[in-house]
Design a protein around this nucleic acid. Sequence first.
DNA 1: CGCGTTTGACCTGCGC
DNA 2: GCGCAGGTCAAACGCG
Length: 325
Amino acid sequence: MANETKDLHNYHYTSPYSHYNNNFNNQNIINLPYVTGPSTYNANMISSQIGSDLHSSPQGAYELGFELSPPSSEYFNPSIDQENGFYNGYNYNNSHKSHEVVGGGSAIVEGETRDPASPSSSEADHHHGEDSGKSLRKREAADGGEDDQRSQKVVKTKKKDEKKQREPRVSFMTKTEVDHLEDGYRWRKYGQKAVKNSPYPRSYYRCTTQKCNVKKRVERSYQDPTVVITTYESQHNHPIPTSRRTAMFAGSAAPDHNSSSLSPVSDFIINTPRSFSRDDLFRAPYASVNVNPNYPQQQNQEFHHESEYELLKEMFPSVFFKQEP
DNA sequence: CGCGTTTGACCTGCGC
DNA sequence: GCGCAGGTCAAACGCG
């Protein structure tokens, strides 16, 4: 456990996606508690880490430096929703009960890239996202007919409008031998793709609960095959299936809220010490410094912004609720 | 039989 | 315009 940070060096800075490696200027490593022993994969789980890098682009936008293989089209909006804070759409009543950051992996929060002209919620966007887009398109194409082209055009136009709207994502790096970590929810695999520069494929899962559009991607790190990177997208709109709750509490690397409204502001590498308190987040030894060998160490081992703390709180509510009487 | 996985085809966006 | 890579679809298949 103590050497987690060391490992993280590799996770972060040798990505072939140079885009994500540049301009490190704000990094934190945060230790989170190893809350309980996750029986479901404890045996396999060597350790867990949480990591993400926050970079600032020339435009001041944040980019995530991470070993994930993010789509080239992925952009991260640095703006914080000042009006609603980080927590709009977040159900603490549910989440704080059901989540322990057990062996929490690396967490990245990828925010939505909101279209200013479309203030609609991510939830709403979601429901006529790719599902109604692609499948409809495909079905129409399969049926043939002149209407197809027309409808395709409509879809295309519609698509364009929705183009920039992305679901927020949270990624976890978990050192584990099992690819698909039990997180309490039921998932259906809907695809698998080879990942460029990686011998390991990426799997795509969708929550099987009706009307729940949460998706997750699972891929193994090509740099450290013992590390599994799980990326959650969107937010569950239902409780954890009862039959899975036991497993869920036994250990999960996934927050059930999936940060529906998080803004992409934070950058955490989280280790999981045995004990933990809120204050630990703000001071050594739990708070670590920049691990990027290519960049000077951060002068500050603490969170640079209260928002980062807030973000962490958002992502791992159980940790915080636990600590606060 | 229902549910989940596999897998090749397809779509889309992006860079050159 | 073309090729590439990421992401999704859906038929076929496997399993309990």
